[in-house]
Amino acid sequence: MPLLANVIRHRSLAIVGMAKNVGKTVCLNHLLARLWEEGKRVALTSIGLDGERTDQLLGTPKPEITLRPGAIFATTERHYRQRQFVAEILDVSDRQTALGRLVTARAITPGKVILSGAPDTRSMGRWIDDAAALGAEITLVEGALSRLSLASPTVAEGIILATGAALSESIPRLVRETRRVYDLMQLPPVDEPARRALAGIEQGLWAVDDDGRARDLNLPSAFLIAGHKEEILARGNTLFAAGAVTDALLQFLRVQRSPGGITLVARDFTRIFARGDTCRAFLEAGGQLRVLLPATLLAVCANPLSPTGFLMNSDELTAALRETLRVPVYDIKRIDETCYSKTR
């Protein structure tokens, strides 16, 4: 099935890169071109990445996405002022960032702009709704796997994962790394009562007590668990880490030998930074891992070309990925080819 046919029935789509230069932008541009060919009205935004924003303050990155007339997009006040094309302002947010407020606009003439986006999951969700109300049929969210990004890519109905030679020049290693993220994206959602109790919590370590209520453990950081062993499991066996799930946290929970086992809830797959073996050890010791915001992975886009110029064998790469991943895999360099060969 062509990538487009796979994704077009979704109202919103996040394109998440495993690392820089894995071809996230190529994938995004491919989708945009196809959507525009279909005459779809598109909205574009980005999951705010603080690390990149800091870079943007120091240097000026090149905008890589060309908007067509009619496209709705989100950018910062500063980048809006720097644009070289005509656009109609639709909204200016109240919230200030380092680069000013968030401007939502519609391109009148074609042009390039650096995308930005609402700073947290809830307001990102609202932005997607607003874009739909303004006429967008599909919203593409440029995503990132980073502990610095505040909004979750799961806010979109589906996710496309971009991976590639930039990650590793060894195919088995690339597949292993991609598989790790793939596995995290398969983590089951927490049960409904706990989900309701935890919805909207943006930081801290929490417990869900016997009455199903969320209790803040008031730890300044998940990194400081060692000094607070007593409090952590006093409230209940279901814990929610709104921030990073680290090796230290999982190891600590693994050795607690809590009767009935511990359920650890992460916000979403992007918040789990623990190594694969640490996760496995936790699960084998009777622990359970859940996510508050489950991910729907639609496809994996692989880029056989690394930024250093190394080119992998595309067939080997896609075959290896297809063997281990149960979602469609596309080679972005031959994406149109793959599409047509499959449909014929």
């Binding site: 656009a87 109609e88 639709l90």
Partner: peptide, 12 residues
């Protein structure tokens, strides 16, 4: 609002 459509949008 030179085009008198009373939408809260703006450009030149």
């Amino acid at each position: 609002d030179p085009e008198a459509n009373r939408l809260p949008h703006f450009y030149i």
